[in-house]
Design a protein around this nucleic acid. Structure first.
Length: 904
RNA sequence: GGGUGCUUAGCUCAGUUGGUUCAGAGCGUUGCCCUUACAAGGCAAAGGUCGAAGGUUCGACUCCUUCAGCACCCACCA
């Protein structure tokens, strides 16, 4: 075996191991009755997407869970896939068409869709390939696409069932219209941004009077579609006007003055122009009062033929300017004031949304929401952090119908068929449609032109990917899935709807036992939802393409390594907080990977040295010749395993990284390896050395296993080097379990004492600038409790770790002349080195320590002299305070004496 | 208008059931070291009293109230 390089080089190993895992089918998950399933469905990224830092975080966390559970013996199944992303994808392809001087209408629907599929084949897999670079252990054979045949069937099936149940309906409604995409959007797809605009006050002449009605508006161009003026029925000022008419300026149309509770008499003039075709609230008012809906726009936001000629064909915002000019010229504009209001914009293209009346398809949500609300309330689906439960419940309780039709071409075409006479039905195919409509086989049918909202396929993801509506073994075994890892920004779009869909469509499907599902806990799509942090840049801004502040994860992987990136983002991600990320932060992960690497390198070198080419069996812990360091590290290891599992069980990902970091770096590398050296380089027999290195390897092996879910590549590479397992992978090694017999509080406290003594000596050395090359002599006066510990075996630790030449145990009365000193758990340490010690620095140090102890003692005294405390606080707490008091007091006295000695 | 989260060392942030050797980490800073795993390293040091004001409690960074600042979500008044 060749020697490992001094620095870990991720590039040289990552691809090698990924293909090793993949080619050996180690990511595969199959129905296995002997194992408990653990399932995650990936939030399917858009096929247009490339890997972002958000994906990195999200998928790293999923992979951590999957690898951890897999090693724990679960049948861990991670289902990957992509989303067809209607608007986004159509956009991309239309843009590339535009470069050829074409648009989709010139191409026609069929040709255009061919182009999209072509594009998908060529570029659609990018993100999936990139996930491999990250180390994601998805079961790639299960990869799905939301427009796969199977998933398309599921979509149709769901649509038809909901339609037949009366939960899908068609209606002329006012919707959020994107004038760029020429499509309706659901309410959730509209983003509101606060905008500085104006409030224009316009005079509408009253019929048969010299008076005016004054209305205020932020969108004056919509007056062309006004159908009425409304006032509040309780408003005394305007009561007499109700039922009269006003004249719409410029147009000259007669507008009735109506009364409606909706009007807030305290806002503006208390009079509202009513535009039923172009305002959500006016639309509702219009329905209540039977007002005409005057649509003044074309689909692209230009003015249509229903407006006076001079405005026809104008863009809506040009028209606004012109209207204002004209109103002013004709004396109708009373005043203009600045006004801040919220403007809805398309979440894809940022175009200002126009409320617009059109024929759309809707899902009635209330009946679906009720069970979905209950199941979260009952705790069958748990959110982490928990606070999202409230957000979810609020949305569910106030749910509105879902506009599911989109005027696009790319997507699942709505499975509704129209007969020549205009009657229609939803069906899985034309034959079924004809049957349902009672038509003969030759009657031509027309399918609805619109496609479904992208989310209409994603909400089926946890079961459509497993074969639904077929009753498959996969579906029985892997659904309900276990953990969903996603961003809180799509809690409504996706998470909530998946709960509704699973509840509705898995009802009655066979469970793992083959019995029809009825219980809520077997109808949920997943049991836990982990909401990831939102990744921001170092300034706290969202990562975005336009800001150019989003690092390319592949560059980061290239520079720092996938493990470094994974570990860093996991380390930075507390539950429920945003993460400020910058590339340089990956140094943390890179340095840690390198530290692990070098620990392995050290062990490997010594293994070769001591054991030659012998293969070491690492199945069993070698328990011969255990010393304090061994007992201590075994105890620490088992604590670490427990803490790690606790952290992940509670979804505290960052906590789990800290457990790893502390154990590996601070316990194992900083202390254990150094302690082991004292034996490897000491005068132990060869046999003992062999056992010592073997045991160190065994412990390191457990550490690697624990590290593997977070850092799969470096752990695999080292594992293969160190343990010579031909063809096996650490991926499928057993995850360490807590072995209570190794938890050893005594060893931990003894080791803590040794560490404290060493630290005390090191501090003195540091403070007095004693060069490392200078060996020093140390006198120790231990307490009875630690006498043996110091005297017996552990002098060797001090010698090596604090660079001590010799250690003398001194009698209770002996006082060194000129010495630095410290007190550790009552034990006194003296370093008598005339000429080496800076006396005034040493005095300062002692005085500081004395002051610290005095402060502690003061607060303890205050407590203990408080009768309330002594009476009411638990006995153990009081007892602990008393013990501390004694300890601090004796330490204090010793230090004082030493200080005096130094002064003399 | 309703809601949520945040405010802890120079910077970025941890701190899960209230008990001062738990006020921590990483980075940065300072000093000494290329000590035969690691300078992407080792050893040590300096820096915070935990946004403000009250309250509960024997005791609060940790619970409650109010306030201030920051961020976000939902609804939306023309």
């Amino acid at each position: 075996m060749t020697e490992l390089p001094k620095t870990y080089s991720p590039k040289d190993v990552e691809d090698k191991w990924y293909s090793f895992w993949e080619s050996r089918g180690l990511f595969r998950a199959t129905v296995n009755k002997n194992k408990t399933p653990y399932t995650i469905v990936i939030p399917p990224p858009n096929i247009t997407g490339i890997l972002t830092m958000g994906h990195v975080l999200n998928n790293t966390i999923q992979d951590i869970f999957i690898r951890w559970k897999r090693m724990q013996g679960y049948e861990a199944c991670w289902i990957p896939g992509t989303d067809h992303a209607g608007i986004a994808t159509q956009n991309v392809v239309e843009k590339s068409l535009a470069q050829e001087g074409l648009n989709r209408h010139q191409l026609g629907r069929e040709k255009f869709l061919e182009r999209v599929w072509e594009w998908k084949r060529e570029y659609g897999g990018t993100i999936i390939k990139q996930l491999r670079k990250l180390g994601a252990s998805c079961d790639w054979e299960r990869e799905r696409f939301t427009m796969d045949e199977g998933l398309s069937n599921a979509v149709k099936e769901v649509f038809v069932r909901l339609f037949d149940k009366g939960l899908i309906y068609r209606g002329k409604y006012i919707v959020n219209w994107c004038t760029f995409h020429h499509t309706a959007l659901s309410d959730d797809e509209v983003e509101h941004t606060e905008t500085q605009g104006h409030l224009w006050h316009i005079k509408y002449p009253l019929e048969g009077s010299k008076e005016f009605a004054v209305v205020a508006t932020t969108r004056p161009e919509t007056m062309l579609g006004d159908a009425a003026i409304a006032v509040n029925p309780k408003d005394e000022r305007y009561k007499k006007l109700i039922g009269k008419h006003a004249i719409l300026p410029i147009v000259g149309r007669k507008l009735p003055i109506i009364a409606d509770e909706y009007v807030d008499s305290t806002f503006g003039t208390g009079m509202v122009k009513v535009t039923p075709a172009h305002d959500q609230n006016d639309f509702l008012m219009g329905q209540r009062h039977n007002l005409p809906q005057i649509n003044i726009f074309n689909e692209d936001g230009t003015l249509n033929e229903s407006v006076p000629k001079q405005y026809e064909g104008m863009d809506r915002f040009d028209c606004r300017k012109q209207i204002i000019k004209d109103l002013e010229a004709q004396g109708y504009l009373l005043k203009t004031e600045p006004h801040t209001y919220n403007v809805g914009r398309c979440y894809r293209c940022n175009t200002i949304i126009e409320p617009y009346i059109s024929d759309q398809w809707f899902v009635k949500m209330k009946p679906l929401a009720i069970p979905a609300l209950r199941v979260v309330h009952e705790g069958h689906v748990r959110f982490h952090p928990e606070r999202w439960t409230k957000v979810y419940e609020h949305w569910m309780a106030n749910i509105r119908d879902w506009c599911i039709s989109r005027q696009l071409w790319w997507g699942h075409r709505i499975p509704v068929y129209y007969a020549p006479d205009g009657t229609y039905t939803a069906a899985r195919n034309e034959d079924e449609a004809r049957k349902k409509l009672g038509l003969d086989a030759n009657t031509p049918l027309r399918q609805d032109d619109d496609v479904l909202d992208t989310w209409f396929s994603s909400w089926l993801w946890p079961f459509s990917t497993l074969g639904w509506p077929e009753d498959t073994q996969d579906l029985r075994y892997f659904n309900p899935t276990d953990t969903l890892v996603t961003g809180p920004d799509i809690i409504f779009f996706w998470v909530a709807r998946m709960v509704m869909a699973n509840m509705e469509f898995m009802k009655g499907m066979p469970n793992a036992q083959g019995k029809p599902r009825t219980k809520n806990e077997e109808l949920v799509p997943f049991r836990d939802v982990y909401f990831t942090s939102i990744i921001r840049d170092a300034q706290g801004r969202k990562m975005s393409k336009s800001l150019g502040n989003s690092p390319d994860p592949l560059d980061v992987i290239n520079e720092y390594g996938a493990d470094a990136l994974r570990f860093t983002v996991a380390y930075l991600s507390p539950l429920g907080q945003d993460v400020l990320f910058s590339v340089e932060k990956c140094e943390l992960g890179r340095n840690f990977a390198n530290k692990i690497w070098n620990a392995g390198r050290f062990l490997l070198m010594n293994k070769t040295e001591i054991c030659g080419g012998d293969h070491l069996a690492l199945e069993k812990l070698p328990t011969d010749h255990l010393d304090l360091a061994d007992k201590w590290i075994l105890s620490r290891l088992n604590h670490a395993v427990r803490d790690f599992n606790d952290a992940l069980n509670n979804f505290h990902i960052n906590e789990s990284t800290k457990v790893l970091y502390d154990f590996v770096w601070h316990d194992f590398c900083d202390w254990y390896v150094e302690l082991v050296k004292t034996r490897l380089y000491g005068d132990e027999s060869h046999e003992v050395k062999r056992i010592v290195i073997q045991r160190a390897l065994w412990i390191f092996d457990r550490a690697l296993r624990m590290l593997h879910p977070h850092m799969p590549f470096v752990t695999e590479e080292l594992w293969q080097h160190l343990t010579e397992r031909n063809g096996q992978s650490i991926m499928r090694a057993t995850f360490p379990t807590v072995e209570e017999q190794w938890i050893d509080e005594k060893a931990e406290s003894e080791m803590a004492f040794v560490q404290n003594v060493i630290n005390a000596v090191r501090t003195i050395r540091g403070e007095n600038n004693i060069p490392p090359a200078t060996e020093i002599r140390v006198h120790v006066r231990p307490t009875a409790e630690h006498r043996e510990l110091i005297f017996d075996a552990y002098g060797k630790y001090l010698k090596k770790l604090a660079r001590v030449g010799s250690i003398d145990i001194i009698s209770p009365t002996w006082v060194p002349k000129l010495a630095a000193s410290a007190v550790v758990d009552g034990a006194e340490i003296f370093i008598p080195l005339e000429g080496l010690i800076d006396i005034s620095a040493e005095r300062t140090r002692l005085e500081k320590e004395i002051a610290r102890l005095q402060q502690l003692l003061e607060s303890i005294a205050k407590k203990l002299s408080n009768p309330q405390f002594v009476e009411r606080a638990p006995k153990e707490v009081v007892q602990k305070e008393r013990e501390k008091q004694v300890n601090f007091q004796t330490s204090l006295e010793k230090l004082k004496k030493n200080l005096e000695q130094l002064a003399a």
